[in-house]
Nucleic acid binder design. Structure first.
Lengths: 343, 343
DNA sequence: ATCGTTGAATTCAACGTGGCAATACCTCGC
DNA sequence: GCGAGGTATTGCCACGTTGAATTCAACGAT
């Protein structure tokens, strides 16, 4: 029992050839009822399980796909990863997860596939890698990019329209009569493409409303967690003028903003309206509940897997890379409830 | 470039044998500088990556371990999974993640290893499976159980002392002068061992303080999410007497409790003190911030992996199963800040 | 000149599967 | 009694890799 048994062991025990056992296991060929029974018995007795390494070697496919995300503990990526694992299971795929921690080197390593070929395909959410560099990496491996533009890309891409979504979020704040609208979440040092797009949508909305974008309202952050949001909010409150609204590029940042607002006695939404992005579970139970841009996460998962499947199973992969835009909607909750505006 | 190249291809190109290429790749044997250079060149030109399936087949090991948890999107498991993935990477292991959704059948399937052997070992957090059943499943595969007792177990176990921790949490509430202490999180229908232990600690603390445990204060839940906590809290508030404290078996439940308290105008911590369990990130930014039992998650990850490593690498695995208790501490925050007690 | 030693590279075999082609067995029709 | 046409089963090989054993050349010591 220590050393796991193989087809050969089962065959010996059942008094048939290894090939027949294989046929029973896979239903490949016709097997007489009597033989099938004997083989099945031997399988049960020996506790035989097929060796997937051998199978993969033979088939040239592993049935394993990779998912590379910045951080699993971040709620957005946790939710997305959960959906991807489930949807992948539906396709009989197993998912291995890697965390890049927003490190360019880690992203590069995964894209290049250092350390060998296990994965049939890779879904990656690049955070620190410049779009140009992603495009340059030539790979035989099917790759789907999440939330990053893929310019002359060799890879498929699945994402929401970040510019439009950010525009909507900002416009929502402007509609409430707010004019000192801060944006929290820029990451200029990382060349984070997603952040850049959201900043662009933010500025576009301001301009359309006749408000000139000002640098003082655009707050860069080190990372995208609650603590970074809280810190950015504190800086704003310590500045010359306090904002009357905040568009945070992620819900986590927004929750940090809410936290700091509480701590400093700023009333939300009366004195400060807040919008986030991602629609994570927390935002539905925070105090106040969080208005946010909600991407259709399940659809992101499904479409990403569909892209992979197309490339993995297509005999010749001359299909041009697709660039899928996933629907989103603005979910209005307590943090932007129409209230008395501060003087 | 379509079909990935093998040692043989590289060998042909470099004018050496496949074995020599293997030696260059792995640094297995001495290779002359000149040969190494030629081989490396061929590797780069062909974009060769070792085929891990073949390697695994030869080695009898895949370098892949499995992690089976109820749900990836739950913050506690997300944080834990993130730590496990990182710590596993440090050991050059890759992690495949499965979600059981608290389904007994799914847990059983994973433990039995249906579908073949890919994993060198499995870390599983059983939620619905009865301890007896876990113990009965004989496996050649090294298994580590998280947070579940493993009675006559063949498997290692890593967990906090749930009884003691629940006792501390409850005692903390009693110390504040609260006497109508509710417990939210029992799952009698699932035979959830962890929940049972926390309930036991809760009752023990009450008795020690001279308070008789009453059924009306023990609220079962369907799942352990925020919505379940909110629902349970609503039921309590709709009941005959309102509690003046709640011990929620997970932070998620506790956050649902806070949410419902806000919605019903119950002031926390003045009228209601709340303690959670898990110390998830959200609880540090909620309003009020959440008092909680904080298990040392990194240590859980490290110890679990150490157990696996011991079994995977030990020549004869006659090592008796270990049962490791992970330290925890009560982190007091806003939700139990000493305040005016309700009349 | 011969032998042992060392370093460098090679050959052979096997890990467990499944595709392919071949073979053994069986039944039926004439 | 014999070939045709199935059905059930088998043997052989290759997938890409590496452990073990082997070959070959060069060198220093005797």
């Amino acid at each position: 029992m220590r050393v796991s048994s193989s087809l050969k062991d089962v065959a010996a025990r059942a008094g048939v050839s290894a090939r027949t056992v294989s046929n029973v296991v896979n239903g490949t060929a016709r097997v007489s009822e009597e033989t099938r029974r004997r083989v099945q018995e031997a399988i049960d007795e020996l506790g035989y399980r097929p060796n997937l390494a051998a199978r993969s070697l033979r088939a040239g496919r592993t049935g394993i796909i990779g998912l590379a995300i910045p951080e699993l503990h971040s709620p957005y990526f946790g939710e997305l990863a959960g959906l991807l694992v489930d949807e992948a299971g539906r396709r009989s795929w197993t998912v291995i997860i890697d965390q890049t921690h927003g490190d360019a080197e880690a992203e590069r390593r995964l894209l290049k596939g250092d350390g060998g070929r296990v994965m049939d395909g890779l879904i990656i959410s690049p955070w620190a890698l410049q779009a140009r560099e992603v495009a340059e990496i030539a790979r035989p491996l099917p790759v789907v990019l999440l939330g990053e533009r893929s310019p002359q890309g060799r890879a498929d891409r699945v994402a929401v329209d970040n510019v439009a979504a950010a525009d909507e979020a900002t416009t929502h704040l402007l509609t409430l009569g707010r004019r000192r609208v801060a944006a929290i979440g820029l990451q200029p040092h990382l060349h984070n493409g997603t952040a850049e797009q959201r900043a662009e949508g933010y500025r576009r909305a301001l301009r359309r409303a006749g408000v000139t974008p000002e640098v003082q309202w655009e707050r860069p952050v080190g990372a995208l967690h609650r603590e970074d949001g809280a810190r950015a909010m504190a800086e704003l409150l310590d500045g010359d003028a306090a904002p009357d609204a905040v568009f945070a590029f992620t819900d986590e940042l927004a929750l940090g903003v809410l936290h700091m607002a509480h701590a400093r006695g700023v009333r939300v939404p009366e004195e400060l309206a807040v919008v986030g992005f991602d629609d994570i579970e927390d935002g539905r139970y925070s105090h106040p509940t969080l208005t946010t841009v909600s991407p259709d996460k399940r659809q992101i998962a499904q479409r990403a897997l569909q892209c992979l499947a197309d490339r993995i199973y297509s005999p010749d992969n001359e299909v041009p890379p697709s660039d899928l835009t996933i629907p989103h909607r603005l979910v209005v909750r307590g943090s932007t409830a129409p209230g008395t505006r501060a003087a």
